[in-house]
Amino acid sequence: MPRLTFEAHGYELRENESVLECLTRHGVTVPHSCKSGICQSCMMRAVHGVPTAEAIKGLKQTQQADGYFLACSCVPQVDMEVTLDAPELFLVPATVQSLVKLNSKITRVRLQPAQPIDYRPGQFVNVRRDDGLIRSYSLASVPQQDDYLELHVQRNAGGQMSGWIHDQLKAGDTLQVSTPRGECYYRPGALDLPLLLIGTGSGLAPLYGVIRDALRSGHRGPVWLFHGSRARNGLYLVDELQALAERHKNFRYVRCLSGEPEVDGFVSARADAAALQQHPNLKNWRVFLCGHPDMVKASKRNAFLAGAALRDIQADAFISAH
């Protein structure tokens, strides 16, 4: 087995063990969250030894060249010495401007960063609490229209960060916010293409950002949003979305309830099923998928089989940390 060295200490790796698992097992604290190579909060740097290809996926060329890699995705094939001097991950303190309950499970958090943050609506930031706990949240705000960062935080059963945000966080408190990342955003330049957005729960957050960004950019093609929940009280921003649909004739908002019978104004189906049923041919569509990982995975496949090009399917699975 290759050997891992961290702060002059040697550690034996077990078979198929990642750098993150090995260090955590030995009581070393490495910041981390999704453990899936997405949030990048476990970024470390290799001083000796080469990280695996898997561990540098999604990093910038310059970061790769400097030896940075993701500890959660790196199962070392050679001896490695690693350090924790992660690059510019948490530059910006942000003050909580307001907290508003959007429904029983989702709280809207508006943050005022200490300095302007450059982002595209639909990207995500890592939010760090004082004690080092990190979670990723998508941005529902649009920088050209909103002078705050807006997150929709869904309370997860046993969720450390979401529970704390719902129960204890107050206006005026400070959090650290990372550089925004992620591919789930509106790409300008093709104003006539049809857009299909499918979201469940707080997966609406990035989609709300993407939709407003598209409409603000003068998107002319149809923009279809299918937002799904089990029951009616799981939906949110209903008035805002309906108002948006009145102002923009090309925007259509479909509310989907998977656990309730058909009632006026709602479709009784899962959001992804309803979307694919109504739009069975997705050739030349751009598709955005956000929310539950199972929904995102299945929809990606189904959208692809319905004719959407893989590069035109932008997906953001909300992987909950455990």
Binding site: R301, F304, L305, G307, A309, L310
Partner: peptide
């Protein structure tokens, strides 16, 4: 070719 091929294979 990739998208066409992959779509056929998945179907």
């Amino acid at each position: 070719a990739v998208d066409i091929f992959y779509r056929k294979v998945l179907a």
